[in-house]
Amino acid sequence: MKFADFMCESAICVDIKATDKVGVIQELVGSLVSAGQVKEEDRDSIVEAIMKREELGSTGIGRGVAVPHTKHSSVESLIGTVGVSAEGVEFDSLDGEPVQLLFLLVSHPDRPGDHLRALENISRQLRDDTFCRFLKQSKTAQDIAQLLEEADNNQFAS
């Protein structure tokens, strides 16, 4: 599975304003709403579902990266977006580091296989330090979209 299969370029946020976990997630879900990927009426329940998952255990996987995710019946297929926070946000990561780079994923409950493959692909690509560094330094959504495309073409981690 490739980033192009589920990433929404118009929802990418390169300058996250929020400074806490819930704020960041609200902001990223908000950008999916603005991009027309999520209906306004589903916004709060998606944020709530993601936060509920975070309460069970953080999705901060270390090295300044987090992958908040959930399943929600309001979306038809996998949708995802990327957020960058220059300041970094406290996310209860295993290594205790604040998170600067977030990949947020929402998928339909009936497609568990796709959901796992998307998470696997994100995790695999994020193993590459260069990829993460470039993403964190990105100033525009186009920069990020281009990096995702390059990753899809196997230019970073295998």
């Binding site: 998952r53 069970l56 255990g57 953080s58 999705t59 901060g60 996987i61 270390g62 992958v67 990561s93 295993l94 796992l116 998470l119 696997e120 995790s123 695999r124 193993r127």
Partner: peptide, 19 residues
């Protein structure tokens, strides 16, 4: 090394079992 259950999906995710 991390404290937690071997069957806790959130911990397995965080520990990057996926890759």
């Amino acid at each position: 090394a991390f404290v937690g259950s071997a069957i806790d999906s959130t911990l397995l995710f965080q520990a990057q079992t996926l890759t």
